[in-house]
Amino acid sequence: MDEKIVVKNLVTRYGNKTILKDISFSVQQGRITAIVGGSGCGKSTLLKHIIGLLKPASGEIWINGKDITKLSEMQLNDFRKSIGVLFQGAALLNSMTIEDNVALPIREHTHLNEATIKIMVKMKLDLVGLSGFGDFYPSQLSGGMKKRAGIARAMALDPEMLFFDEPQAGLDPITSAGLDALILKLRDIFKMTIIVVTHELHSLFTIADTIVMLDKGELIFEGTVEQFKNAQDDRVKRFITRTPEDENYCPEDYFNILTAD
């Protein structure tokens, strides 16, 4: 199967702190790859690098035969027309209706007439189950509906790749399951390459074809769901069995921290 995205030796730093340490992995065409790991392990930072929002300290990210870390902002804008991103909070523009939000990328990047744009928007909203909500503002929608509207906007230009940053965050199990079903539908019908950043185990096992796991900025696992379930790495096992980490310090150290000046 073709490799759609190849990340090679990616290193990124905030000041003196290294956030991602020499990450290398690849994403297959037409499959769902989940990036998993505990909070603060660098998952969202990795995603932001793959969509070109952040520049790494070193390393390469090859997408469709181009190293996107070397592209200028103008070239990156062209690349971004071929991707769709759903952010954690959906990131819909609050000053616009849902219809205008979905139409935004179409209006910006094409010269289609308004009638055609309206039809396209309607189709996208139908796809995510939001027909009839076009005139609503984001503040009038529930969390799950906002995420669906975010997916409709990400799908506006029929991208080759979709990226989801913690799509299930803050959603109830039923809405979350609905969103999982939608993601699977997008892969099966549109043959899209999808990357999902998540730490929801149930959803992970439902949607993922391959899994990449990070821990404190290091890549500790890359493989299929079956391999993930049978992994021998302690950190992977703890993640699957939801075992808390051991305390980092003994009671005396804790006392010293509390009473220190």
Partner: peptide, 13 residues
Amino acid sequence: AEEIDALRSMGIN
């Protein structure tokens, strides 16, 4: 609210 990132991710400056 990540709206600026969303704009950039859509290729909109």
